[in-house]
Nucleic acid binder design. Structure first.
Lengths: 222, 222
DNA sequence: ATCGACCAGATTGGATCCATTATCCAGTTC
DNA sequence: GAACTGGATAATGGATCCAATCTGGTCGAT
């Protein structure tokens, strides 16, 4: 009934995995909330088995927690863990950005410019889902420039860990505008290939995000 | 038939997962080698299902690769990937070590001293399996001192990624002796709480390991 | 009234069976 | 002789069923 015109039919697991990631990103699956296998499986129109296997992958990635005979749930982040994540991100993203500033081709930078404007459009339209996606693609287009896949994947996992809270940040119009401005700064630094400016732009970007999010987590009663 | 006097019977998945990790660490499951589910399941005396779920966790951790309808296999590392891993380890372990040098209690350091001598004993006895385990415990006793679980887990995953090759390093008596000497240096730096010396000791340690391993990978015909 | 044992419903864990897909090889065609 | 097609075989993917475990509530005893 949906689009589902898949050229090559993926396995059901893959389909379920994609849906679960989506649900984790949109906040449909909220931190702390237990995951009832039967419910999800029925909602997706699949049996429990491929769901269980998809959940196992997410468990390996740390995106869900499993307790034997009790089930899966989405991990909740403390303010301390949130700070840890952003601290580690800072360490790794700095390295990735410095390499990227050297290694990105002009064509890559063109791509990044496009990704930025896509994100900006989504932002002004206030579509949270589209914006988080576009925002991710923009940033990872930059990180990919470091050409160290394993590093980029670690950074991606760190982003994933806070995915469940990300929508909070984008709900505020002020934050959205600030993000747009910071993205312009990042693109500008890249175009001049000024690694130091790029790094400090990214630092500022993270700092603002962590401030908003920890304020939310501090007061949240999820 | 083995010990199996488990106080609380774990689930079969957990048992299988432990066995698979062991097999990945000892080189019983070699890089590039396909994993035949039926074979492994029968060898462990379980059905395919818990095996499949355990493999999914390892897939999420990146320790096995899955291709739909073709199966799982252990990833092979190129020399470039090996360098990437050790480079990222360097970045993160340096941070962890600096924090640990501040935060470890005297009691923690006592524990580390014990862990070092356990590793040294295993080393002189030439028991590769015991040595890799003891070595890991020694190093992670140090890293744990940083008190940032997520950072330690990322480092652990990076170690895991080269687990399949680790035995190579310990096969040489010369390497074992060098490791023992470097461990003494690490402990000494910790006892003086000299972060700089600790960091450079760890750097040297990694440099030696990556040299041996990339020499092996370069000539390997696995 | 509180605490514990115990029972029923719900949920997850595991085994078996069948469907689907990939691989390999023989046969055919150009 | 090389390349393609078709089918047999073996492996993986998925569904269903049953067993084991947890949860919540009721009953009884202190």
């Amino acid at each position: 009934m949906h689009e589902t015109a898949r050229v090559r039919p993926p396995t059901v697991q893959e389909f379920v995995l994609i849906e679960l990631r989506k649900a984790l990103g949109t906040g449909e699956l909220k931190p702390g909330q237990p995951i009832r296998q039967e419910v999800i499986a029925e909602r997706l129109g699949v049996s429990r088995l491929p769901l269980r296997e998809a959940l196992k992958i997410l468990e390996g990635e740390g995106r869900v927690i499993h307790q034997p005979h009790r089930g899966y749930h989405v991990p909740e982040l403390s303010a301390a863990e949130l700070h840890d994540i952003f601290w580690i991100r800072g360490i790794l993203e700095t390295q990735a950005a410095r390499l990227a500033a050297e290694r990105l081709t002009d064509a890559d930078i063109e791509q990044i410019v496009v990704a930025r404007s896509v994100a900006a459009t989504a932002s002004t339209q206030g579509d949270a889902q589209a914006m988080t996606t576009a925002n991710r693609e923009f940033h990872f287009a930059v990180f990919d420039g470091c050409r160290v896949d394993r590093l980029v994947n670690i950074i991606r996992n760190l982003w994933n860990a806070t995915d469940a809270y990300r929508w909070v940040y984008y709900e505020s119009k002020g934050n959205r505008e600030r993000v747009a401005q910071e993205h312009r700064e990042i693109v500008d630094a890249l175009q001049r290939r000024d690694a130091d400016r790029l790094v400090s732009a990214l630092d500022a970007h993270r700092t603002h995000a962590v401030e908003s999010l920890s304020a939310f987590i501090g007061t949240a009663d999820i």
